[in-house]
Amino acid sequence: MPIPVDKLTDPAVRAFVTALNSHDRAAFRAALTADATMADDGADRDLEEWTDREIFATRGHLDVEAQKGGGRDLVARYRNDTWGEMRTQWHFVVEDGKVARFETGQA
């Protein structure tokens, strides 16, 4: 049973997941610091290119199964139109109430 997004512990992570699931680019960008970075499967990626390809152009969606580390470490089912659904892990670094870095990969 997924954890409802409004029950995610960390407010910055909650804003990130809410924006991702609603495909709201403006809200997603607002959830990130100006210099935010990310990695996928251990390799740094271009944040704008990756989020466009993996989230916005392909209707990405995150169903959180578990959270720990104050809500900054998630295990979730992630799906998009390119890859289908997979079990993933997410780690967030939060600075000043916004996501400064996120790392994702298969769980």
Rank of each mutant, 00 (worst) to 15 (best):
P4E: 02
Q67K: 02
R77I: 08
D35W: 14
D46T: 10
W50K: 08
K68M: 07
K98V: 01
R29N: 12
K7L: 03
G71P: 09
L47W: 12
I3K: 02
A12N: 04
V17F: 04
D73T: 05
W90S: 03
P11E: 01
F28A: 12
A76W: 00
E54V: 12
T33I: 03
D52I: 09
R25L: 04
A66N: 06
T51Q: 13
T88D: 06
T104D: 10
A30L: 00
A57K: 14
L32S: 10
R79G: 09
R25Y: 13
T37E: 13
A15Y: 02
A66R: 09
E103V: 14
T37W: 01
M86I: 06
A107T: 02
M86A: 06
Q106L: 04
K68V: 04
G70Y: 01
A19P: 07
T104N: 11
D63E: 09
L8G: 03
D96N: 12
A15H: 04
Q89Y: 08
F28N: 11
A34R: 13
V13Q: 06
P11H: 01
L8T: 01
G60F: 12
S22I: 00
T58S: 15
G84R: 07
L32K: 01
D96K: 12
W83A: 11
M38C: 15
W90I: 03
N21G: 11
V94N: 01
T51D: 12
R87W: 06
I55T: 12
D6S: 06
D24H: 09
E95N: 09
A15S: 02
D24C: 04
D40L: 14
V5C: 07
A39E: 15
D63M: 04
L8A: 08
P11D: 04
W90L: 08
S22W: 02
L32C: 13
K7F: 01
A26R: 02
T88F: 00
F102M: 07
A107E: 02
R59N: 15
T58V: 15
L20F: 12
L20E: 10
F56I: 13
F28P: 08
A30G: 07
E85K: 11
E85W: 03
G97H: 08
V75C: 00
V13A: 04
R79H: 11
I3V: 04
L74A: 03
M86S: 07
I55N: 14
E85Y: 03
Q89V: 02
D6Y: 05
R59M: 13
E48N: 14
P4L: 05
S22Y: 00
V93E: 14
G97P: 07
D10E: 09
M38Y: 10
E103H: 10
E103L: 14
P4H: 08
V99S: 08
V64C: 02
G97V: 04
V13T: 08
D73G: 00
R77Q: 10
G42M: 14
P4C: 10
D6N: 11
Q67M: 00
A30I: 01
A31Y: 02
R45I: 13
D73H: 05
R72G: 03
E65H: 00
K68S: 08
W50R: 12
D6G: 03
Q67F: 03
A34K: 13
G97W: 09
L74F: 04
T82P: 00
A12K: 06
G97D: 05
D35M: 11
T51H: 12
F92L: 07
R53M: 10
S22L: 01
R101P: 01
